[in-house]
Deep mutational scan, measured.
Amino acid sequence: HNLTITQGKLFFHYNPKLCLSEIHKMEEVSGTKGRQERNDIALKTNGDQASCENELLKFSYIRTSFDKILLRWEPYWPPDFRDLLGFMLFYKEAPYQNVTEFDGQDACGSNSWTVVDIDPPLRSNDPKSQNHPGWLMRGLKPWTQYAIFVKTLVTFSDERRTYGAKSDIIYVQTDATNPSVPLDPISVSNSSSQIILKWKPPSDPNGNITHYLVFWERQAEDSELFELDYCLKGLKLPSRTWSPPFESEDSQKHNQSEYEDSAGECCSCPKTDSQILKELEESSFRKTFEDYLHNVVFVPRKTSSGTGAEDPRPSRKRRSLGDVGNVTVAVPTVAAFPNTSSTSVPTSPEEHRPFEKVVNKESLVISGLRHFTGYRIELQACNQDTPEERCSVAAYVSARTMPEAKADDIVGPVTHEIFENNVVHLMWQEPKEPNGLIVLYEVSYRRYGDEELHLCVSRKHFALERGCRLRGLSPGNYSVRIRATSLAGNGSWTEPTYFYVTDYLDVPSNIA
């Protein structure tokens, strides 16, 4: 807008934040220059609390790290170098490059900038070799853009010569660093050979998330399962459950009422301010606690030095998902009996873990797994792929695949051998790939016309006998059925096997 004052003059007093240069501009645009008398524009009460600059400061050096910015700028000295009290560095987070010096300023003089007072450097006698002032900004957020400017702080001049310097606002972004852990990993099994893994992005990506790394490792069953005799009275049979499938998407929606109208769909109840505040506090606490764990609990591995020492970490090797089922080394339970199943799973520490690289999504279907087997899954978020990966501390989750139908069934015939004193040795093959492992066998036998009897055969007993022995049988026709019990439950009964026990007292003698 054009402003013209045809008559009258300007009068400025007691404006401590208004620089004289701005008042002189007002004289020019209003056409009143030359009308004012000496005392109409006070030299001592206008701009006496402001830094009124008329020179431009330029930054000469900028260096960044993930949490620091090192700045240096060209030296500046007023005509009387004693008038320079120091520099004021202003900075704040700036997602967009549209910041002005006066953003967030209120009537009390406060604003949204963080201000650092910096002492002037030592003055050199040689004007050509003056030290460049600077400042190291610490405690910054990774991968965050900051708006920065600097200006001088000078003393009051009796001659009211307006001098000083100020830089333009520059924008500097800190470097990326390792992201925080992925949030809320959930693993479920939808079949006997697959596990579905879902997660949420890290709360602090500290860069642009480029991919996720998912490692999985087959877990050995508890050692007590191999040692305890679950045929003993009072000892509860062990059981394991597989990871249940995901709930429906509708039930997972946030901010939804727990109660549904019987007449149909209901609208979600909005969260109160107290609920939102509580969630923010919980989120802040979780982030602080995660940072504490990362800094205190997890110790970084030592990389190899120039002395030739090897990095103890196993090298990563990509495998196809079809090879995942046989990740671990199978060892027989008892070496003397080769027909026992290889369900003991000690994992070799030198073995390469299978892994998958996930790009542009937060889910993965891990296939080719062994049925009813526990897996430990390790999830890392990465925001750099080359020249070397920059990934987060791992988040861990466990899951067990679903049982395989008929995996616990005894394959092959049940054979028998009759000894003296009416002892019958029953023999059968253990299931080759049971659900988890076989903890015991149930032997059901009966003599024709009598009630059915049951015998429990422990895992250890089966390994020693290759089956079991029935003792003290009365003469007669017998039928026997056997079924295995694994961590997933009972298998199917075998087809009945028949044998006849004679009275050993009636056996004919070869003595003449």
Rank of each mutant, 00 (worst) to 15 (best):
S203Q: 10
S203Y: 06
S203C: 15
S203T: 08
P205C: 05
G207E: 02
N208P: 10
I209E: 07
T210P: 04
T210S: 15
F215Q: 10
F215S: 09
F215K: 13
F215A: 15
W216H: 02
W216D: 00
R218S: 12
R218M: 15
Q219D: 10
D222G: 09
D222W: 14
D222T: 06
S223D: 10
E224A: 09
E224P: 15
E224G: 05
F226M: 08
E227F: 13
E227P: 12
E227D: 14
L228R: 10
D229K: 06
L232N: 14
G234V: 13
G234N: 06
G234W: 07
K236M: 12
K236R: 09
L237H: 03
P238Y: 09
P238K: 08
P238M: 08
P238F: 11
R240K: 15
R240L: 08
T241P: 06
T241W: 04
W242C: 03
S243E: 04
P245M: 05
F246P: 08
F246V: 06
E249V: 08
E249M: 05
D250I: 15
S251Q: 14
H254I: 12
N255S: 08
Y259D: 08
E260H: 15
E260Y: 10
E260R: 13
D261H: 11
D261S: 11
S262L: 11
S262Y: 08
S262G: 12
A263K: 03
G264I: 10
E265M: 05
C266N: 11
C267T: 09
S268I: 10
S268Q: 14
C269H: 09
K271L: 11
T272S: 05
T272R: 13
D273V: 04
D273Q: 12
S274E: 06
S274F: 02
I276M: 06
I276Y: 11
I276H: 11
I276D: 11
L277R: 12
L277C: 03
K278N: 09
K278P: 12
L280R: 13
L280F: 10
E281D: 06
E281R: 10
S283T: 06
S283V: 05
S283L: 05
S284A: 14
F285A: 14
K287F: 12
K287L: 07
T288N: 14
F289P: 08
F289V: 12
F289H: 13
E290S: 10
E290C: 03
E290R: 13
L293Q: 04
L293A: 12
H294E: 06
N295F: 13
V297Y: 11
V297E: 08
V297L: 07
F298W: 06
R301P: 15
R301E: 04
R301M: 06
S304N: 15
G306F: 12
T307I: 02
T307Q: 08
G308V: 15
A309V: 14
A309N: 12
D311E: 15
R313F: 12
R316Y: 02
K317I: 09
K317F: 14
K317S: 12
R318E: 11
R318M: 05
R318Y: 04
R319D: 07
S320C: 09
L321C: 15
G322E: 07
G322F: 02
G322K: 05
D323N: 09
D323E: 11
D323A: 13
V324Y: 03
G325Q: 15
N326A: 12
N326W: 03
A330K: 14
V331P: 14
V331Q: 11
V334W: 14
V334C: 04
A335N: 13
A335I: 14
A336S: 12
F337G: 14
P338S: 09
P338R: 10
N339P: 11
T340P: 12
S341A: 04
S341I: 07
T343E: 12
S344F: 09
S344M: 09
V345W: 11
V345P: 15
S348A: 14
S348N: 14
E350I: 06
E351Q: 05
E351K: 14
R353I: 15
P354T: 10
F355N: 13
E356R: 09
K357M: 13
V358P: 07
V359A: 10
V359D: 01
V359C: 13
V359Q: 14
N360G: 08
N360T: 12
N360A: 12
K361G: 07
K361V: 07
S363H: 05
L364P: 00
S367C: 09
S367P: 13
S367L: 09
G368I: 04
G368Y: 04
L369F: 04
L369Q: 03
H371P: 11
F372L: 05
F372K: 01
T373V: 10
R376D: 15
I377R: 00
I377S: 02
I377M: 10
E378S: 07
L379S: 01
Q380R: 03
A381S: 10
A381G: 04
A381R: 10
N383T: 11
Q384S: 13
Q384K: 03
D385C: 14
T386I: 14
P387H: 06
E388N: 13
E388Y: 13
E388C: 14
R390H: 03
R390C: 11
C391S: 01
V393Q: 03
A395D: 10
A395I: 07
Y396I: 07
Y396L: 11
V397Y: 08
S398H: 10
R400S: 09
T401D: 00
T401P: 04
P403A: 07
P403S: 07
P403I: 10
E404H: 13
E404T: 07
E404D: 11
K406Y: 04
K406Q: 13
K406P: 07
D408N: 13
I410P: 03
V411R: 15
G412E: 06
P413M: 14
V414M: 07
T415G: 04
H416R: 05
H416C: 08
H416S: 11
E417C: 04
E417L: 09
I418H: 04
F419W: 15
F419K: 12
E420A: 06
N421H: 08
N421C: 02
N422V: 04
V423T: 14
V424C: 08
V424L: 11
V424P: 02
Q429L: 09
P431Y: 02
K432N: 05
N435A: 02
N435V: 00
L437N: 12
L437T: 01
I438Y: 02
I438F: 02
V439G: 08
L440D: 04
R446S: 02
Y448K: 12
Y448G: 00
G449S: 07
E451M: 15
E452N: 03
L453P: 03
H454D: 15
L455E: 15
L455I: 08
S458V: 05
S458D: 04
K460G: 05
H461Y: 11
A463D: 14
A463K: 08
L464M: 10
E465H: 12
E465V: 14
C468H: 09
C468L: 07
C468M: 11
G472C: 03
G472V: 07
N477K: 08
Y478W: 08
Y478N: 00
S479C: 03
S479H: 03
V480T: 12
R481S: 05
I482W: 00
I482P: 00
I482R: 01
R483D: 00
R483N: 00
A484G: 04
L487K: 08
G489W: 03
N490W: 15
N490S: 15
S492M: 11
W493F: 09
W493Y: 14
T494L: 02
T494I: 04
E495S: 10
E495C: 04
P496Q: 04
P496R: 04
T497E: 08
Y498E: 13
Y498W: 08
F499V: 11
F499Y: 01
T502Q: 07
T502R: 09
T502E: 15
D503M: 10
Y504I: 12
Y504K: 13
Y504A: 08
Y504F: 08
Y504G: 06
P508W: 03
P508R: 15
S509W: 07
